[in-house]
Amino acid sequence: MIDTIVQVVLLLVMPPLLLGVIVKTKAAFAGRVGAPLLQSYYDIIKLFRKGSVLSGTTTWVFLAGPAVTAVAVVLAGLVVPMGGQPAPIRFAGDLILFAYLLALGRFFTTLAALDTGSSFEGMGAAREVTFACLAEPAMFFGLLALARLTGGLSLSGLFGGQVLEAWTSAAPTMVLVLGGFFIVLLVENSRIPFDDPNTHLELTMIHEVMVLDHGGPALGTVLYGAAVKLFVLAAIVVRLAMPAWTDDPLLRWPVFAGSMLLVAVLIGVIESIMARLRLPLVPNLLMGACVLTAFGFVLVLGATS
């Protein structure tokens, strides 16, 4: 019960901190002081206090987009096990619900982008849906490999106690799946090398360009939803990378929070040392991720049957 409450609170409160850590890491690499760690919180609060300038082209879809997306990613976060504990909501097949809730969020984000009738936002939407088509099979091959190894049908089973066993019995597969999931984490959250959140040119962006016309509370909701999505996917990567968890409830959650911040630092490092890929190359990298996880799956098929 306590664990459930802690997880829900962390899920709702901690995500913007990850963004702050990423920015701080990048600043450290660049030799700058950088924005405060809590800057994302300040931004979101400030945005919610602002008025809105809406485009005359938009309809109700424009505001429904960010709202539905935020709800979808938070609900998706409720089926993801965190801190080595089972998720608050778990049932056979919840992994499919997880993937489809993320897809629901994407569906409404892209519709809200198209609602403005702007070509920039159209480009962003086209890229988002295209890259999702390649990221989705990569994620499913990874989930299949884990399902084969752990015998689970829910995320809490896939990312439960048997992850440790899976590492000892099928380490190559686990490495491939971890790599694949990390790439999915980067592309789903529009990070470098897929998308540069800080670029100033609308023509080259993916996520940021889709929300160009959102402002005020709507933009705040978008930022918050994006942060939660990063948090949720990072939690999966953390669970995969850290197969052993302590039973001490006092230690469990600080370790979880710390390792989440480590993922954020890692993303910051990647963003500092890599350049964004040219757009035509992005599908290649995604197909690479798909091949990685598919190969991992084939390995466990051969190994156990």
């Binding site: 919610f48 602002k50 008025g51 809105s52 300038v53 809406l54 485009s55 005359g56 082209t57 938009t58 505001l63 429904a64 960010p66 709202a67 539905v68 935020a70 709800v71 403005t116 009738g117 702007s118 920039f120 160009l212 016309d213 005020g216 509370p217 709507a218 909701t221």
Partner: peptide
């Protein structure tokens, strides 16, 4: 969430302009 966001946005709508 949609209701809350509309409640937050609508009363403080500053302007209706063209898309950027």
């Amino acid at each position: 969430c949609v209701y809350a966001l509309r409640r937050r946005v609508r009363p403080r709508e500053i302007a209706r302009v063209g898309t950027w």
